[in-house]
Amino acid sequence: MEPGSRSTILAIALALGVLFALPFAAGSLGNPAMTTLATRILIYAIAAASLNLVLGYGGLVSFGHAAFFGIGGYTVGILFHHHRFNEALFGLMLGTDQFLITLPAAILVSGLFAAAIGALALRTAGVQFIMITLAFAQMLFFLFVALKRYGGDDGLIIRRRNGLFDLNMRDDTTFYFVTLVFVVLFFALVWRIVNSRFGLVLGGIRQGERRMAAIGVSTYRYKLAAFVISGMGAGLAGALWANYARFVSPDMMHWTKSGELMVMVILGGAGTLLGPLFGSAALILLETVLAAYTERWQVFLGPILIVIILFFRGGLAGLVDLVKKRL
């Protein structure tokens, strides 16, 4: 899908229209659960889009992306915790429950973690990179399991959603629109980045690192920059999730969560702008449908995933292209 092409613009317009109308449709259908389901899809779309930046555009198979999702969530959770109990954090500042502070904080903190992990992991490539990102994510998982002060295994409850201006954030429809604003902003950002000079270099690195070195590009710093931006995006998603669920736990960074994010990217079509949105919608809807059927739905998800990987490469976007070619 070429950005800027007519079909992309059409797809974007269509997606925006559907997303904007959705809560009203949910209201008139008397099915408000649709709005919260859609909020979940949107939040995961941001996380998947951030992973897509490194995985789809940059070709870096990061298997630890849930770590940054969790770090973003915990930043909100911990700030709220300190705000609620009026405890100083690191002996310096008090917590806060203000969206306009917690959100940038979450983005910043996850960016710092991504910088540290990326700086080490990017010293290797290929299969080592996969193993290392997975291992570091697991390390953070264990760290938060052990942090009894912040709930350990049980996680941290956030009693109220963060405040934003005078909005009633408790209202699910309001929160949905707040999330939607961030989705639009984030996807616009990704669009700009992948079409910029930086994005061109990133795509070049995916297709041939040796070629990039031969034109004088030191690839490491570009990969690291992409990794950090990607970590920040996942942190943003985590912060939104913490507000949505009003709960954070180490499960947010469990390795299966990293796997799910990867599945979303692949399902939607890696290296496409809207792919992560489709992928997130597809996986969450599939989960919802299967889960209504059986509690052990992963027994179906596994084989479905295998079949998709083995026989339908290119994900949903590839399928759309295939159908378009047939027409």
Binding site: R192, N195, S196, F198, G216
Partner: peptide, 18 residues
């Protein structure tokens, strides 16, 4: 891309390169 690499670093995140 080669012209761009030769001109200096590529840390420009905005602006359509093409």
């Amino acid at each position: 891309l080669a012209v761009q690499a030769h001109a200096g670093h590529s840390f420009h995140f905005f602006g359509a390169a093409r």
